[in-house]
């Protein structure tokens, strides 16, 4: 059952193919990395020093873009109602969707980080820290995004609101994830991972409760 759910969710969310997700968040992410040197000038030292942080901000904002499709369509189509009648709890459906959501944007974002790092002239060491940080942080971003998408799914103009709500909730991930660039020890990365795991554990319950609450309204 979980496999069937995951297969359907991946079909909805992974970019490419018919009816799949969009590659726009990735292009947006790369566009930021491309535009930043134009905006601040070709000072290689400045770019190398600030580039990691720019990648983090771009990743956070790119993670907001796919939220609109994440829950709303299925909620309106009654998919969660039908799953409920089949004994699939909202929490399970949301946990599967969280995994699918991360699979659909996390690995591709990590891949896109390589050309972005090249555009910003980051050193190998910095690129490695950014990649590890994103690997630790993107599950948390996905979890925050899912919970917020479920909370705002039944609201008018929910997508815009979701974007605004994700930003403050994602700040801890950004602080520690990007903070790892400034410190040589791995503590910040580990903290990022810990925050991510905590958020991933909480998000399915928050999102599941939001879907049930939306039914009563």
């Amino acid at each position: 059952m979980i496999a069937a759910l995951l297969k359907r969710d991946l079909g909805l969310l992974v970019p490419g193919g018919r009816g799949g997700g969009s590659v726009l968040p990735l292009l947006f992410f790369l566009a930021v990395a491309m535009l930043y040197p134009f905006a601040v000038g070709p000072d290689a030292q400045l770019l190398a020093r600030t580039g990691g942080g720019v990648i983090w901000v771009a990743a956070l904002l790119a993670a907001i873009l796919p939220l609109e499709k994440l829950v709303t369509d299925d909620l309106e189509a009654g998919v969660f109602d039908q799953l409920h009648l089949r004994g699939v709890s909202e929490e399970l459906a949301m946990a599967v969707r969280l995994f699918a959501h991360w699979l659909a944007f996390g690995p591709l974002l990590l891949l896109a980080t390589l050309p972005a790092a090249a555009l910003l002239g980051l050193s190998g060491e910095t690129t490695r820290t950014v990649l590890l940080g994103l690997l630790a942080g993107t599950p948390g971003l996905a979890a925050v995004g899912l919970a917020v998408a479920a909370l705002t799914a039944s609201l008018r103009g929910g997508a815009a609101l979701a974007g605004l709500m994700v930003i403050p909730l994602a700040v801890p991930i950004l602080i520690f994830g990007a903070g790892a660039l400034a410190r040589p020890d791995p503590g910040a990365l580990l903290l990022t991972g810990a925050i991510s795991l905590g958020l991933c554990a909480l998000a399915p319950f928050a999102a599941g409760a939001a879907i049930r609450a939306a039914r009563q309204a």
Binding site: G19, A77, G78, D81, Q82, L85, V88
Partner: peptide, 26 residues
Amino acid sequence: MGLVDERLALDGNRSLGQALAFWEGL
């Protein structure tokens, strides 16, 4: 219980066969 209401829960972008196959599988 089986429910049919105005919410059809069939994926608009999939072919009817695929959309139904998901539920048949479940």
